[in-house]
Computed example of a mutant assay.
Amino acid sequence: MKLFVSLLCIHIAVALLALRNESALPIVLWHGLGDTCCLPISTGVLRLFLYGKIKNIHVISIDTSSDSIISLQDSYFLNPNQQVDYACVVLREDKNLRNGFNVIGLGQGSLFLRAVIQRCGHKLPPIKNYISFGGPQQGISGLPYCTAVSHQTCSSMRELLEFAPYHYMTQHAILPATYWHDPLRNEDYKKRSTFLSDINNEEVINELYRSNLKQLQRFIMVKFKNESVIQPPESAWFGYYTPGQKKELQTLQQSSIYLEDRLGLQEMDKAGKLIFLTHPNQHLEFDELWLLENIVPYLVDKRNNGTSADVLINIKIDTN
């Protein structure tokens, strides 16, 4: 056992040394609901992890305000279309991204980054890998709890989402309403959702969205094994309830988005560009070793003979 632990520690140390000697593309992060760019939870933890493991990495953590209180409020109430437009400008003007970059989204931030890719990706330097941590790719049908807002506010939001999610006022006042996907009101969702229905090409196929998304090298979807925030959890892998009921689930490959290839996901899947991973923890609770084994290899530039990737494979073998 001691020998096993010693070998594991050596492999990890060598992996970190290799990572620190390789160049890596910049990374763009986008936080989730009830979070900001830099709080010492979720996004802040991931940001510090990246800085600590990849030498000279340039990380942008998108936020709507330098005031953390406003930023927290925006994560609940600022329309995502406005946020995406803002992010497109920020990324287009950042000269550090000129040779390409990777993007990582947390929760709803994953959806916003996909919208950036689809809507303005052709105006940006190449986006290589898109990593979605617990991102509700097919939306949500429940809001179990809120952080950073009062209990009364959360209860009022939940009532509106349950009874009038597609009303004009709800769609423009409550951010989660824009990716609320009621399987019992599927046609209302398609016609009246102001955000998710559009980026999922539900009503009309926007060829620009398909083209931009297919330019990715990889689309990596991470589902959390003990997920209790995203409902249903399968949304993190683009699965969802079969339309018309709220019990039976279907996978991405069984959905019309895939079968009709409305986003190009079927083509990407056949090309090996879709990666489905399961993290063992609760929603956005990160395990560093898991990140090192499963995520960092996609973030490190392989131009230097792939040394770090080889070492990481050795770690994975030893820990099984």
Rank of each mutant, 00 (worst) to 15 (best):
G121Q: 00
G52M: 09
V14S: 11
H31Q: 06
L17H: 07
N96A: 11
D261W: 07
L97G: 10
T147V: 14
P176I: 08
S308T: 12
R119H: 02
Q254S: 14
E285S: 14
L208P: 00
R303L: 03
R98M: 10
N56Y: 04
S61Y: 02
S156F: 14
S65Q: 10
C37L: 02
K53T: 15
T307Y: 07
I257D: 01
E288M: 09
P232N: 10
I257P: 00
G105Q: 06
I313E: 05
Y166R: 09
K225I: 05
L124W: 00
G244P: 04
V311L: 13
E187T: 13
I127H: 03
E248K: 00
Q171K: 12
D188M: 02
T170M: 10
L216V: 07
M169Q: 14
E248D: 07
Q118L: 06
D287G: 11
L16V: 15
E22V: 13
E227N: 10
M157L: 13
I140T: 12
L78P: 02
A236C: 12
K246C: 10
F276P: 02
Y145M: 08
P232E: 08
F238T: 07
E293S: 08
S6D: 08
L274A: 05
Q138A: 11
D85N: 12
P144S: 11
V116Q: 01
T43L: 10
N81D: 11
E285K: 13
A177C: 05
A87N: 02
C9P: 00
L7D: 07
L8E: 04
S66N: 10
V59D: 05
S110Q: 01
L216S: 06
K223G: 12
C37A: 15
L3I: 15
F219Q: 04
L312C: 06
L292W: 01
S61M: 03
G44L: 09
N186K: 09
D287R: 01
I12S: 06
P243A: 08
K128I: 09
L111S: 06
G264W: 00
G239L: 04
M1L: 15
I104P: 03
R218K: 15
H167K: 09
V296H: 04
N102D: 13
D287S: 12
D318E: 12
L111W: 00
V90T: 12
I41K: 04
G34D: 05
L25H: 05
Q73C: 09
F224A: 06
I313S: 07
L284S: 05
T170A: 12
L16Q: 14
R119T: 11
R303D: 07
S65P: 11
N102L: 01
